[in-house]
């Protein structure tokens, strides 16, 4: 009998095209490609307005992931790579975007993207990525004033969440809601090391804890870990969360509760913040160059 193998960690890949721009007749197309350790996004802007994007898993070959992401974003737009005036690569694999004109660090791009998604009042950004988390401060233009990151361990990252999803056989996208189905908030599991957290979760399951209770303990631990990072870098309102974990209410609500503040509500997919920022910076660079040339 064949045993069905379910990949609980697998999150939904997506692409989007702006329904308000059926056909592009503008003057400037720019793109940003964010190759992260776990996910890759491509964002296309038409005259600075989001036109299309894609969000997919980073494969074993980063250049291929970049090409797949931009092709998927362009799918229903009628655009080709030749139509894109300027492309910026960002993220962990930014040097692996074969068609990019420039690379910019993901910290700079996330701040710029968050400024667009959440508006100019955002001052503190928590980017919770696949294998690291970053606390970033920025000004009203989305320019970074300080940052602090922690990529020492996968605890407190998307990858850590995927490990727990597989362990408990729960879809990674359901973890947030399930983690609130507990009578009272349990003590957090280890937040220092994802391996310790995993073995602690296994032990708790064996001792009779429900999946929901273990998930609550894990989300609680993850929230505590990033709160320490936020406190160390300093908290200045308004506060916003980007990255894949921003979609996990089990973590975001706990961060809000621990810090006693409310994060801004996103108007777009939080996972595209880096690629969006890269595309916005690309637009600024082209406009500066055009202004110089008269």
């Amino acid at each position: 009998m064949a045993i069905e193998k379910v990949e609980y960690w697998r999150w939904t890949e997506s692409n989007w095209k702006n329904p308000d721009i059926p056909d592009w007749h503008g003057s400037l197309i720019t793109a940003g490609v964010d190759i992260g350790s776990t996910s890759t996004q491509a964002v296309i802007l038409a005259d600075g307005v989001p036109y299309a994007y894609s969000n997919m898993r980073t494969g074993s070959n980063s250049p291929d992931s970049a090409i797949s992401a931009i092709n998927w974003a362009m799918k229903d737009t009628g655009l080709t790579l030749e139509d894109i005036t300027y492309t910026i690569g960002t993220g962990y694999g930014r040097v692996n975007v074969p068609f990019s004109n420039k690379t910019v660090t993901e910290i700079t791009c996330h701040a710029k993207g968050a400024n667009y998604i959440y508006g100019p009042t955002v001052r503190t950004i928590l980017d919770m990525g696949g294998q690291d988390c970053k606390a970033i401060h920025c000004d009203e233009k989305g320019t970074v004033t300080s940052f602090m990151m922690n990529d020492k361990c996968a605890a407190g990252t998307g990858r850590g969440m995927e490990v727990i999803a597989n362990l408990l056989a729960v879809s990674v996208e359901d973890i947030g809601e399930l983690s609130f189905k507990v009578d009272e908030e349990p003590a957090p599991v280890s937040s220092t090391c994802v391996i310790f957290a995993k073995s602690e979760a296994t032990k708790l399951m064996r001792s009779g804890w429900t999946k929901e209770k273990v998930l609550a303990a894990y989300c609680h631990a993850m929230a505590l870990r990033v709160v320490r990072l936020l406190e160390r870098n300093g908290m200045e309102l308004d506060f916003a969360i980007t990255g894949g974990i921003a979609k996990n209410v089990g973590v975001t609500r706990r961060i809000e509760n621990i810090m006693g503040i409310k994060a801004l509500t996103p108007t777009m997919d939080t996972q595209i913040a880096g690629a969006l920022g890269a595309a916005l910076i690309a637009k600024e660079l082209v406009e500066k160059k055009r202004a110089k040339e008269g």
Binding site: S146, M148, M149, N150, K152, T192, R232, N233
Partner: peptide
């Protein structure tokens, strides 16, 4: 820009 390079682990926080 203030850049903090380093990490926090079980033994403490180490940032330059």
């Amino acid at each position: 820009m203030i850049a903090n390079y380093g990490y926090e682990d079980g033994s403490g926080h180490y940032y330059i």
